[in-house]
Design a protein around this nucleic acid. Sequence first.
DNA 1: TCCATACTTCGACCGTAGCCGAAGCATCTC
DNA 2: GAGATGCTTCGGCTACGGTCGAAGTATGGA
Lengths: 232, 232
Amino acid sequence: MKEGPDIAQIGALIGDPARANMLAALTGGKALTATELAAVGGITLQTASAHLAKLEAGGLLLPRKQGRHRYFTLADETVARPIESMMGFAASRGHLRHQPGPKEPALRKARICYDHLAGDYGVRMLDSLVARGAIDAVGDGLALTAKGEETFQCIGINVADLKASRRPLCRSCLDWSERRAHLAGSLGKALLVNFFDKGWARRTAGSRSVIFSPEGERQFLALFPVETPVAA
Amino acid sequence: MKEGPDIAQIGALIGDPARANMLAALTGGKALTATELAAVGGITLQTASAHLAKLEAGGLLLPRKQGRHRYFTLADETVARPIESMMGFAASRGHLRHQPGPKEPALRKARICYDHLAGDYGVRMLDSLVARGAIDAVGDGLALTAKGEETFQCIGINVADLKASRRPLCRSCLDWSERRAHLAGSLGKALLVNFFDKGWARRTAGSRSVIFSPEGERQFLALFPVETPVAA
DNA sequence: TCCATACTTCGACCGTAGCCGAAGCATCTC
DNA sequence: GAGATGCTTCGGCTACGGTCGAAGTATGGA
């Protein structure tokens, strides 16, 4: 016994409902203030403050002071990964806590997963990129092809810049709603940022869902077609 | 709020030290009895029984009754994945709970990770396979090459059989002690089983470490060489 | 300077969950 | 059948952690 890393600590941190809600909200990749996090956790500000102190001490969160606000983000990708895989587990067991409201379908359609696009649209995008040979799905990983490099240049993404960073370019991320892979990594992030910049889509306040404008949706669907079977 | 899967439940289950120890022990892939798990958790049998009931109800464990014993295993790979990624996180933060004993070095050298080889030897094996072109490290994923298929046939692994299963052939798994990737997936499992069958290595009771016989070690190192720099 | 806002600290309350001793089933061995 | 072994259930104790009200500190704006 007593071998290996101590997983009980991080487990306990995630194990409280209020904290779990906060962390799940931060999976959206956006920095949130203590007050906002108190709201998503369904607790008062004092209690939230105590929780946030614990999460910070545990190395899960990074605080950033800005004026009289304190913004929190997930510390890095090694924090996001356990959370995502736990969501995958929970989804596979049907432990959903959905209050089936209008937001639910929107969330399944397109949402932010840490810093890239997930949901139906995220899966569709990757499928389409693979189908056209821009990305190779090889084994359980993903790789950019020469043809893909061209494609992304056209879209307006400078792949050379991304390659300079140490972060993996392509990474496959399991989607809890679709149970299929979507594109993560720096390329996944760059694509989402690109959509925002072009005004095709925007974030929603207080939710992880991504809303496409009518025009943006048209463009997106045209850019990432799916091969439809011939007959109806 | 209240969107997406409920991660608090699984977090709380992993969050108790006794349960975390049990789960970590089961990451070794071997089925363990309630009494054995009580020992690794450092608690009495009654308490362990209560914990195991909770883990089972939460869908983390699968019990199998055999005579007057009850054997427990992790339910499936979707359970092992969050645990492994949490170990990765904890290791990256230095949350080790090592009782530095004689077992520690052995554990870092070679151990079981769910069902495949991890530790220094696991990392070395993958490095060597990549260096000789048997496996392609592409993006963050892994893929078997044509040349590799030959190689594994020689070693005594029927790749065609593995391909028939739905489980991914190659998967990269982050090693918490080495902080580098080793080979998981059905191929990783097949290799480890192969070593056991050949008598090169064996499991140890009550630990996840893998012990190589002197002859087995010689063979293993010869089979998976590392390109050493020329000078001393 | 004065007030509003954002957040933290303190202190007290309370519920839950972990823990074990003792007793109760179930299964195997002889 | 008697006894040993593996495990579960019950009951009661205890402690820890989550919760909030109230008061305190920092920042920004008028």
